[in-house]
Amino acid sequence: MSALPLLAVEGLTKHFGRAPHPVRAVEDVSFHVAPGEVLGLVGESGSGKSTIGRLVLRLIHPTSGTIRFEGEDISRRPERQLKALRRNAQMVFQDPYASLNPRLRVRDIIGEALDAHRLASGSRRTERIAELLETVGLPAAHMSRFPHEFSGGQRQRIGIARALAVEPKLIIADEPVSALDVSVQAQVINLMQDLRQRFGLAMLFISHDLDVVELMCDRIAVLYLGRIMEIGSAKDVASRPRHPYTRALLAASPKADPDAPKIRRMLTGDIPSPMAPPSGCVFRTRCPIATEECARNVPKLRSAEGDHQFACLYDMANDERPAAA
């Protein structure tokens, strides 16, 4: 990366609860997001993808590691000194119902963002709210309504308008379309694509849906039990996966095509508890090619080609198969 990254995360770790058995939600995660870039975080439950989003926004405190926003380390700053981050990084939530205060009118939900940073007041404030609503495809006249008067997709638009109100550079989108119906999901995906282009937004796009991530993102990071398994361009990760977990995840996602090959290779067993992750490679207990070696060392991310990296002792693409398998 030649340009200064907008967001650079280094060795980020978050443990919930106390020793000896903390929940290891995020473990030694590093990545960066360039201005205007969309990085997808993909994983199943317990992967730590949502925790990473909240850590980056400093809604929770990291156990260790650094988070640099525009070069400045914000990982340990007290809340009072986070004004700039609050202005530059915003969040869009999964649940369109719980993410809007049911007792406030849309005007106040969006206006609160303007007030918090003294961006507009009086008639200018109303104008700005109207403008934001129109930006997300809602009539300005709806600003005096309450959230319950809107459908799920419309509420999600309101949540997006609230995030846009402070003109952020980065948006953490936590499963923003997962709770929506397919037809509405498509509307919101297209809206987010438009806004991204129009405002040059960078995004951390958190999702469990590989199809959505592949469509939305420039690069993808695949997480399992709090660690990055594979990271690279969306194309590389989705069409030339190098990590056995990424392959399994792709194989397990049902394709909406009756002619596509049915799911054959399947992972057995359950996702282990993040309170007691396996030693060595966390994926080894379900991995089809795991060996004894995998229990001993945590595999480091290694480069495939370009900036495509994966954390596995064996490179399936180069037939680096374990002798036993």
Binding site: R54, L57, L59, L82, K83, R86, R87, A89, Q90, M91, F93, Q94, D95, A98, S99, L100, N101, R103, L104, E112, A113, A116, H117, G159, R162, V166
Partner: peptide
């Protein structure tokens, strides 16, 4: 999430308590 959203926006704790939670 709406409280989380308010925190992410930098809304003061006093307002979070007196508006978002109290209401």
């Amino acid at each position: 999430p709406f409280v989380e959203a308010a925190r992410a926006l930098g809304v003061s704790t006093r307002r979070i308590l007196s508006v978002h939670i109290l209401l």
